[in-house]
Simulated scan of single mutants.
Amino acid sequence: MLPVANPKLPYDPVRDFASIGLVARAPNVLVVSPALQVNTVKELVALAKSRPGQLSFASSGNGTITHLVAELFNSSAGVQAVHVPYKTGVQALTDVVSGQVAFQFDSIVWTLPQVRAGKLKGLAVTGLTRSALAPDLPTMAESGLPGFEGVTWFGFAVPAATPKNVVARLNAELNRALQSRDVQDRMAAQGAEAAPGRPEDMTKLVREDTAKWGKVIRDAGVKFE
């Protein structure tokens, strides 16, 4: 994604780094204002299609993951919701709660308390599997958008020239740490799930996400200023 966001970037996220491995993945949640008369993703899509260019979505800023996941939703569902960027996710959620904006994709940690308090309606999570924090919420894929995924992920990388034996050792130690129940519990408290794996798994993800989000950025005409 970075080369598309900034063509003058002085490094290449694949060529110039060696992946150590993923640390965690954190899904977002699609939430809507209680004032909106929808209770499922399919109903939101139907409403948006009946009112092209009239529904709006909030984000924590232009080009953020909360913005790009919503643009992915626009293209995947074939709708034309309008982007309303905010300086922070909290400000954005406040206006969704009040009904000034129709919907938002945001962190499960921020949204779930509002959903449980009845201030927002949660429709789906953006991971490929349901979240242990909200097992009753379906995935976007289960809700009629096959293959839909828009998560925040974290990983470790080192300079590309790092010896392979060093990369392998770091990967082994990282995976060992991710097996710790304490580490997993701390991640869960932040809405994330440990994602142990091989260095090549992370490299593959970087390549795939660069292509995936680059297409979303180009198709939506996202401008980075």
Rank of each mutant, 00 (worst) to 15 (best):
P138G: 05
P138V: 05
M140Y: 07
M140I: 14
A141F: 05
E142H: 10
E142D: 15
S143M: 11
G144K: 02
G144N: 14
P146G: 02
P146A: 02
P146C: 02
P146R: 09
G147R: 07
G147D: 05
F148H: 03
F148Y: 08
W153R: 10
G155L: 04
G155M: 05
F156H: 12
F156I: 04
A157T: 12
A157S: 14
A157D: 06
V158R: 12
P159L: 06
A161H: 14
T162S: 06
K164F: 01
V166F: 02
V167Q: 06
V167T: 08
V167P: 02
A168C: 07
A168G: 07
A168D: 14
R169A: 13
L170Q: 13
N171L: 02
N171G: 13
L174Q: 02
L174Y: 05
L174N: 01
R176H: 11
Q179S: 14
S180R: 06
R181E: 15
D182P: 00
D182I: 01
V183D: 03
V183H: 03
R186I: 00
R186T: 00
R186H: 01
M187L: 15
M187G: 07
A188W: 04
A188Q: 09
A189E: 14
A189V: 00
Q190H: 10
Q190K: 13
Q190E: 14
G191W: 01
G191P: 06
A194M: 06
A195D: 11
P196Y: 12
P199Q: 09
P199M: 04
P199S: 11
D201M: 10
D201G: 09
M202S: 01
M202P: 04
T203R: 13
K204G: 05
L205H: 11
R207Q: 15
E208F: 07
E208I: 00
D209F: 04
D209L: 10
T210V: 12
